[in-house]
C-alpha cells in the first residue's frame, strides 16, 4: 500500500465514492473496442506510422512503449482522431470514429497545454464545453489531483508537475470512456506519480479504458494489463506485462527493456 502525501486527498482505492469525475461507472466498455486497421501516417515523404493493425483489449490499461521517435504520440493522435491517417482507419465498435465518439474520449498530452486562466477556470472550461455546469464538480476534480490549495492560481504559473496534474484532472473531468495518456507522469515526483497511478487504476476499475504511453518500466509493470511495443512506426509485440518483461519477443523490445541504445551494429537496421 502506498503512502499518500497529505496534500493529495484522494478517495479510497475502490473508486466507488461519488466524489470524483471518474468514479461513475461508464457503460460496458466491452461493447466499444478500439481498433486500428492498416493505419498509416506519412509526413514529408516519410512513413511514420506503417500500416498498423491493432485491437486494444476492450478494458483495462494498455501501455505503449518504445524508443523516442518510435511513433507513440503520433499513434495516440491518430487513435484519438486528432489527425487524419494517410491511409487505413480507426474504428470504434467496428464503426468509423465520429465527433460524438471523440467527445467521449480525452487525452493528456506529453506537453500539457493549459489555458491562460486559473486552475479552477481550466477545469470549468472543459466541463462547460460538455454542458456540465455543476459548480462543485470542478472543485472535486481539483481535489482529486491534489491541487485544492492552488485552485485560484493562474495555471501557467504552476510547476511542471502541477501542470501535468491539472492536465490529468481536466481529462478526468470529462469522464471519458477512453483516456489517452501521453507520458502523463513524466515530470511528477515519486509520491505524486504513485498518487496519479492510483487515480488511473481507479479509473480503470470503474470501467474507463486507458491507453497510455510511458518510458517508466516500473510504472508499466505496476499498471499494465497489456503492453504494446512500437518500433519505427510498427507494432512489434502486444501481450501481457509479465510476458513482455520476462521474455520480449523482439530484439528491439529486449534492448529497450535493458536500456540499450539501438545502433546499426546491434540491430542491423537503420537506427543510428
Amino acid at each position: 500500500m502506498l503512502e499518500r502525501p497529505l496534500h493529495l486527498k484522494m478517495s479510497g482505492a475502490g473508486g466507488r465514492s461519488a466524489d470524483a469525475g471518474v468514479s461513475t461507472r461508464v457503460s460496458d466498455a466491452s461493447r466499444h473496442p478500439l481498433e486500428a486497421r492498416a493505419l498509416s501516417y506519412a509526413a514529408d515523404g516519410k512513413l511514420l506510422i506503417d500500416s498498423i493493425d491493432l485491437s486494444f483489449a476492450p478494458e483495462g490499461i494498455s501501455v505503449m512503449m518504445g524508443y523516442n521517435g518510435a511513433g507513440k504520440s503520433l499513434l495516440l493522435r491518430l487513435l484519438h482522431g486528432m489527425i487524419e491517417p494517410s491511409s487505413g482507419r480507426v474504428l470504434w465498435s467496428g464503426e468509423p470514429v465520429t465527433e460524438e465518439v471523440r467527445r467521449q474520449q480525452a487525452m493528456v498530452f506529453q506537453k500539457p497545454v493549459l489555458l491562460r486562466r486559473t486552475v479552477l477556470a481550466n477545469i470549468e472550461f472543459v466541463l462547460k464545453s460538455r454542458g456540465l455546469k455543476d459548480p462543485q464538480q470542478a472543485r472535486r476534480v481539483i481535489e482529486r489531483v491534489g491541487l485544492s490549495d492552488l485552485a485560484n492560481r493562474p495555471a501557467r504559473l504552476l510547476s511542471g508537475g502541477e501542470q501535468q496534474r491539472l492536465a490529468l484532472g481536466r481529462a478526468l473531468a470529462l469522464n471519458p470512456r477512453i483516456l489517452f495518456l501521453d507520458e502523463a507522469t513524466a515530470s511528477l515526483d515519486p509520491a505524486s506519480m504513485l498518487a496519479i497511478e492510483e487515480i488511473v487504476r481507479q479509473a480503470r476499475d470503474s470501467g474507463h479504458k486507458i491507453v497510455m504511453v510511458t518510458h517508466n518500466i516500473g510504472q508499466a509493470k505496476r499498471l499494465a494489463d497489456e503492453i504494446i511495443f512500437i518500433h519505427d512506426g510498427r507494432i512489434t509485440e502486444q501481450g501481457s506485462a509479465d510476458a513482455f518483461f520476462e521474455n520480449p519477443a523482439s530484439r528491439e523490445a529486449q534492448a529497450y527493456r535493458d536500456g540499450v541504445i539501438l545502433t546499426h551494429e546491434n540491430t542491423g537496421e537503420l537506427n543510428a
Binding site: 484519438h80 486528432m82 467527445r103 474520449q105 472550461f125 464545453s129
Partner: peptide, 20 residues
Amino acid sequence: KEYREQFSSLVLSTAAQIRA
C-alpha cells in the same frame, strides 16, 4: 497555434474556440 491540440481533443466548435 498553442491551444489547437487541446481544442481539437475537446472537439470544440469554431464559435466556442473563438470565444475562448
